[in-house]
Design a protein around this nucleic acid. Structure first.
Ligand SMILES: [Mn+2]
Ligand SMILES: [Mn+2]
Ligand SMILES: [Zn+2]
Ligand SMILES: [Zn+2]
Lengths: 138, 138
DNA sequence: TTCCTTATTGCAAGAAGTTACAACAATATA
DNA sequence: TATATTGTTGTAACTTCTTGCAATAAGGAA
């Protein structure tokens, strides 16, 4: 079984290794269907691999995000959440009720280009949370 | 003396109080000239008010941000930084060397409008950090 | 000034996240 | 197979951030 098998070659191609820890964490994210905090990943992945530790979870999530296998986003309180990489998208989050709305990347693509040509920076973020007030809460 | 005198009426108008703690924290931010982390604010403001505690700093920064007197932004590692509210602006931050570039809000204004009409959300953020790679580091 | 209301703070404890470093284990090389 | 290399993990200690709650004090009313 398992989703995370598919990721092993991606890692090996870059000189990295597929370990039981990375396997468990990817498996957890694959089957969650939503954004998870490091603590949630830790709790769930540990059911599969009891020897897993907190620092490994934090390090692995950062590592997988740097290598593009997962996406991170910062939620309102400043913490990170993660999900396996899908199509490029962002989120609108209501500061009042927490309601989330997914928006395709193409809706901000033009602004990215404007920022890039203006500044010379190449913007890397492909999973941003924009905060506001949803229509119900206004 | 002091910048923070000007803020007292803003607070009182909303039923809040100007305290020595809020005074010290606003004074610190007014005179820093750059984004500060809560820990930095704590260290600096304590020189002026030695009885100040950490929880008060975190609570006060959040409170002042909610009431528009200061602006928060999340830096790459997920932590918050703060500065007194100036004109609406955002930042481009290099993931490699950390170099920051300030960009006026109007450059993202159109994208905000697009997001808002598309979603019904009213976007509140006026101080976002966009991450990428600067021209030197590319 | 004195009393009252309640916004605000400090304290203590705990949760979340980070770091340094030694031990381990996967892979390459001989 | 034996050895070297180095990517990866666990441990322990630490820093940063949060929460519940009792004590405090700012500002309004008498
Ligand atoms: Mn997402
Ligand atoms: Mn700024
Ligand atoms: Zn809402
Ligand atoms: Zn750079």
């Amino acid at each position: 079984m398992s989703c995370s098998e598919a990721y092993a070659p991606q890692l090996r191609a870059r000189g990295y290794r597929m370990t039981p820890q990375r396997h468990a964490i990817l498996h957890t994210l694959c089957h969650s269907g939503k954004h998870l905090t490091p603590i949630e990943v830790y709790a769930r992945a540990r059911k599969q691999l009891t020897s897993l530790t907190e620092p490994t979870v934090y390090r692995t999530l950062e590592f997988l995000a740097e290598n593009g296998l997962i996406h991170s986003a910062q939620i309102g309180n400043g913490r990170f959440v993660y999900e396996v990489t899908r199509h490029a998208h962002h989120h609108l989050v209501c500061r009042h009720c927490g309601k989330e709305l997914e928006v395709d990347h193409q809706i901000v693509e033009k602004m990215y280009q404007k920022l890039e040509s203006f500044s010379g920076y190449k913007i890397t973020d492909r999973h941003i949370n924009f905060f506001g007030i949803c229509s119900n809460c206004q």
